[in-house]
């Protein structure tokens, strides 16, 4: 098989993906602006969070704060300036007390696969 056997649909997406930059400086059509402001379904709210700092809760006691740069209908995402927090519980050997530990790390850019996403919370106000 070769790359040329791709369905034509994805080629056109690729093309528009690559060419978009030149057009991005153009003023948006009024209709597009109206479209942008309406919230009819949950993902519209995510769209309004583009280029904003968001909070994402993930499976496996993980949380992420970062700037949303891209997402799709699966909630796959690309975030920037990411702070990931992993929470774990350890049992003290002697007192058997539960000790809650949090590990943090910073990552410049991160792709997050949508199937691990539990919730997305729009812009953090600070």
């Amino acid at each position: 098989m070769t790359a040329s056997t791709e369905p034509s649909g994805c080629v056109s997406v690729q093309d528009s993906f690559c060419q978009r930059k030149s057009r991005s400086t153009c003023k948006r059509q009024p209709s597009a602006r109206e479209e942008e402001a309406t919230v009819k379904e949950p993902l519209d709210l995510v769209r309004l969070s583009l280029d904003e700092k968001i909070y994402v809760k993930l499976r496996g006691d993980r949380e992420i704060r970062g700037r949303l740069h891209a997402y799709d209908q699966h909630l796959n995402m690309i975030l920037g300036d990411v702070e990931e927090t992993i929470t774990s519980v350890e049992i003290d050997d002697e007192t058997y007390e539960e000790i809650i530990k949090t590990n943090k790390r910073m990552l410049p850019y991160l792709f997050v696969r949508g199937d691990g996403v539990i919730l997305v919370s729009p812009p953090l106000r600070q």
Binding site: F17, R20, K21, S24, H69, A70, I78, L110
Partner: peptide, 19 residues
């Protein structure tokens, strides 16, 4: 779960528009 991306390869403006 994640893909850690090289900083130089992320053009945020293109990503916003494509999204």
């Amino acid at each position: 779960r994640y893909v850690q991306l090289p900083p130089g390869s992320v053009d945020t403006e293109i990503l916003h528009d494509a999204t």
